[in-house]
Write a protein that binds this DNA or RNA. Structure first.
Lengths: 353, 353
DNA sequence: AATTAGTTTGCAAACGTTTTCATATTTTAG
DNA sequence: CTAAAATATGAAAACGTTTGCAAACTAATT
């Protein structure tokens, strides 16, 4: 029953025999074609064709060559914003004939460390990770392996590895300022879980910073946490919006949550933005098109993915280069119809004092 | 300037020396720990720790062992439905300590063939691809390499490789029947480009099949094609819906397009579903929560990803097994508020005759 | 035809593991 | 305390490549 597996795969020597050359020549055929004579090339090509030879890239890493693979570790693939980044990253690798090894850890940083180790065991030539918050073990491994590493999606001037991303705290400050400028006083926050997620944490801190400066205090009952999921956010928001003292504005940790809040408002037949303003962060695909359009902070996911990959590739070319590159991406607040002044804001706020 | 790179990485022999054992023992320490004495184990462990040793998985493939990697080729990562599938697939691999090599081709099947070759060069132990439409070269490579392969997201009784997915034509039939049952006569179709996309093709064919049976003819002007993108779909739909003779129902190739159409309807202040019914396919995350909820055909993306990965893993265990496994996943039409009878349908349809 | 220079090829060592087989060590039983 | 059995370790070959070096060609120049 268990036959097969016996006849071994065709290797470079099989090809060599068939083409009546030495294995070295076949190797050269692939790696330095200009060093082999045209008719020999032809013979080798035919032999490969006939035998269905597929080179073994794992074998060549041995002689100290690069593996031609790059690792990427993300919290999850199933997230609009990472998906865009991953796609751009992958495209960039594709254009350089590099293969992508991917790992997902679901915001568990210890699992991230395991994945990192696993990718290093497979001898990726470079590695990219999301964010700058990683275990000490992760950082230690990157340091000791001396391969180029880059953090995507977050920027910090004092980071110890390369990083390409926006300042997430600024995104938080922007949305908070926007809501304050519009005259809102009754404000709620809905964020994803902050553990193992420095991007969300930074955004949250940014929001709170602006509120502190403005002397606005958000009661704990108006700070909610939901999974990354429009459904969960909608349910949480329904709860919030049905209460006696309803907030006039909700600041959301990302656009997916913001969509859920908008749907909740619509389900309760609230006027948006008259009775309810909603702002997200990320400006995901679809946020501009929904009705009403979602006010959000645009984050250049594709550019980060593309330029991040490029920076990593550049670092690969110089063996053992330890250069650290950082790049801070600009953010833009995109105002759309989901935010506006609260109904009768001027009067309300005055009379309330 | 270009120093570094000189001090070579620590290998199994370095560890062996430090632990005062032979390389064989270190190897056994990792692969058959029960064969090495406890105190020796301890010494090796310490040596690894001190030296920061990271095993080289690429080297062991050489002796004919498995690589511990699995390849997955998808059209794009940046697509709600594939993202879910990929995530589930990755999770399943994670639980078996397998590493995921991923490739994306953007619906270019020749590029897919190149990617497939590249993954095979990296000696993945198994391979998964989306759909059953692939180049002859791709099929030939899979056959000749004798590694387990599986097609996800599409089912066909006569497929020559394992496949896990729903019958996409059925999805098309379902939505078409639903729209007919509601009494719609003026119907438009918006689908993504069908080239290199057998899933969309099958859905489209399913729709047309039902219409043919029902004797309904859709004028070409009402068959539109847009990119996978709510924004593009919204624009196309605005165009369509502003015309003199507006369709009362739009059937969309997937939920993203359907969302765009709903947003278009809302922007034009049409009553949904009174003046406009919209149906999608896929039932992506968020479709249930939006207002109005989107009628769609639920496709179990996560289950397909998870069970598909599991089937592949099972096939891996048996070296050289050529068993083909197929599994047809059930579809459910989820009726929500985006579809309904056309306004005054009974009268209209009668008087029109 | 002989020399030289240039081009093309092959030999063999190296890469970091795993594993078979043989040997050394420890444990158990007598 | 010895012999036998069981356990733990090491030596060496193997895996499929790449590449430095040397040998064998070929072409160009006398």
């Amino acid at each position: 029953m268990k036959h097969g597996g016996k006849e071994k795969l065709v290797d470079i020597t099989t090809v060599a025999k068939r083409a009546k050359v030495s294995p070295s020549t076949v190797s050269r055929f692939f790696n330095h074609p200009d060093l082999v004579r045209a008719d020999t090339r032809k013979r080798i090509e035919i032999a490969c064709e006939k035998l269905g030879y597929i080179r073994n890239r794992r074998a060549n890493t041995l002689r100290g060559l690069r593996s031609g693979t790059v690792g990427l570790i993300v919290p999850t693939v199933d997230n609009a914003i990472f998906a865009q980044l991953i796609q751009a990253f992958a495209d960039q690798l594709n254009s350089r004939e590099l293969t992508l090894l991917i790992g997902t850890h679901g915001y568990d940083l210890d699992l991230e460390t395991k994945l990192l180790r696993s990718l290093l065991e497979h001898r990726v030539d470079g590695i990219a990770m999301i964010g700058l918050e990683h275990t000490d073990a992760s950082y230690a491994m990157i340091r000791s392996q001396e391969i180029p590493a880059i953090a995507l999606w977050n920027y910090a001037a004092d980071a110890s590895i390369s990083c390409f991303g926006p300042e997430n705290s600024e995104a938080g400050r922007r949305v908070a300022q926007h809501i304050i400028d519009l005259g809102h006083k009754e404000i709620a926050l809905i964020f994803p879980d902050l553990t193992g997620n420095d991007r969300a944490k930074d955004r949250f801190d940014g929001v709170m910073e602006v509120f502190a400066e403005a002397g606005i205090v958000i009661p704990l009952s108006r700070i909610l946490s939901t999974p990354y999921d429009a459904g969960a956010a909608k349910i949480a928001a329904m709860d919030l919006l049905r209460q006696q003292a309803r907030p006039s504005a909700v600041i959301c940790g990302n656009d997916i949550i913001a969509r859920g809040v908008i749907f909740a408002g619509q389900a309760l037949e609230l006027d948006i933005p008259g009775e309810l303003s909603v702002v997200g962060i990320g400006d995901f695909a679809g946020s501009a098109e929904m009705e009403p359009g979602l006010t959000s902070v645009r984050m250049p996911a594709k550019r980060i993915g593309k330029l991040g990959a490029q920076a990593l590739i550049d670092a690969l070319e110089v063996r053992g280069s330890k250069k650290i590159t950082k790049r801070r991406f600009e953010l833009t607040l995109v105002k759309r119809r989901s935010t506006g002044e609260p109904n009768g804001s001027v009067l309300n706020s005055r009379s309330a004092i």
